[in-house]
Amino acid sequence: MAAAAAAGAGPEMVRGQVFDVGPRYTNLSYIGEGAYGMVCSAYDNVNKVRVAIKKISPFEHQTYCQRTLREIKILLRFRHENIIGINDIIRAPTIEQMKDVYIVQDLMETDLYKLLKTQHLSNDHICYFLYQILRGLKYIHSANVLHRDLKPSNLLLNTTCDLKICDFGLARVADPDHDHTGFLTEYVATRWYRAPEIMLNSKGYTKSIDIWSVGCILAEMLSNRPIFPGKHYLDQLNHILGILGSPSQEDLNCIINLKARNYLLSLPHKNKVPWNRLFPNADSKALDLLDKMLTFNPHKRIEVEQALAHPYLEQYYDPSDEPIAEAPFKFDMELDDLPKEKLKELIFEETARFQPGYRS
């Protein structure tokens, strides 16, 4: 834990890192770190609560700039109880001085990944967590956004079992017609939660990839272990087919990539493993919904509104309290091709509203 900075004593240090967030945020305490930044909790002297502050230093890398800009653009436009918001952003007053960006968010005690390492969940908890994931996802999908990296560590939890989806750095506007060349190379989302079509096709992607990830998360809540822990690309596919069985001819016809289709045709026939054999203690309604989410063919996979209306979630289902976005989200430009200098300018502009004396 960093010592509390005395008023006016300059930035606090946390594990050798400068955290320049005073005077409003003090009493910093280390939480963890990701690929390009550290997260601390801090005391907000204005709202009198502890908050989470993520320090991001992305400006050396085009990919990190892209992810940072995506996350900020999306989260500043989203407003939903099951999606983490941005409360404040701290950065230098000029673009030349801006080396880091500090993002202030609600402090959540833990995440689903940490929880599943230590606790076996009751059916009631599984049901409530799944409902909140789908409630947040309904809003995301209504904005025409794909999260693309749903996994237990991106689901934040607090002691009252509130759940918030975080990390929109890989999110995209849904565009089933656009052929994202190089899709697989830039697709760094965790393999275990990846839909089979991501490994088999490169053309376009749809909201059904997020539903697949939610199915993987439900299976993990039922058993405290990942359902498809593939060691590499082909191993991942083999794990999936080992449980779902061989795809039907109709399902194979959806695979545009001939090499991928021929690979699947070359494999020995596998039978589907019954879900109640894998999860003998699970609620039968939970397994019915799991089956509809972990469907090989993305066109037959359940959609988020149908999933919310499934009998497993009937005690929570309330369409009048499951809000959607006001308007579909649009990125003005494809960020993939922009140089990091341009992305830095866009991050600077996007964060201006939090600067003292800002006038829109």
Rank of each mutant, 00 (worst) to 15 (best):
K48S: 07
Y193W: 08
T181S: 15
L28H: 03
A189S: 14
P93A: 01
T63I: 10
L265V: 02
L222M: 13
L222H: 06
I209A: 07
N82H: 10
F354A: 07
A189Q: 12
I240W: 05
G34H: 00
K342F: 01
D111W: 01
V21R: 03
G245I: 01
N158H: 12
L258C: 04
S153E: 09
L69P: 02
V145G: 07
L241Y: 09
E349F: 00
E197W: 07
D210I: 04
R135S: 14
F78V: 13
L200W: 03
D251R: 07
R24G: 05
Y128D: 05
I243M: 03
V51A: 01
P176E: 10
Q105M: 04
V145E: 15
I347T: 05
N87E: 03
A282K: 02
I324E: 05
N281F: 10
K99Q: 11
G10Y: 12
G215C: 07
P176W: 09
F129V: 07
Q315L: 14
R135M: 06
R277Q: 09
L137T: 09
A282F: 00
V51I: 11
G10F: 12
T190H: 03
S122L: 09
P196R: 13
K114Y: 13
L112A: 03
Y25H: 09
T26L: 11
I302S: 05
I255D: 07
E220G: 09
P323E: 05
E71I: 01
S142A: 04
Q62R: 05
Y263S: 04
I90M: 00
A42Q: 01
A286C: 00
N262E: 10
L346D: 13
G32Y: 04
E345M: 07
P274G: 03
I89N: 13
Y317K: 00
Q105W: 03
R194I: 15
P268D: 03
P319D: 10
E250N: 00
E250G: 09
S122A: 04
L222Q: 14
C40Y: 06
S248I: 05
L107E: 10
R353V: 13
I347H: 07
G182A: 12
I324G: 07
A92P: 00
P339F: 03
L308M: 14
D44C: 06
G85M: 07
A42K: 01
G357R: 03
L112S: 07
I84W: 03
L265G: 03
P298H: 15
R172M: 07
G8H: 09
P247M: 03
I240C: 06
I140F: 15
Q249C: 05
Y25M: 08
I126P: 06
C40F: 11
L237N: 05
A92L: 01
F348Y: 14
K342L: 02
F296V: 09
Y128G: 07
N144I: 15
R79F: 11
E305L: 05
D177C: 05
A171L: 10
Q249Y: 03
L244V: 00
L137Y: 09
S248N: 03
S266H: 03
S41N: 06
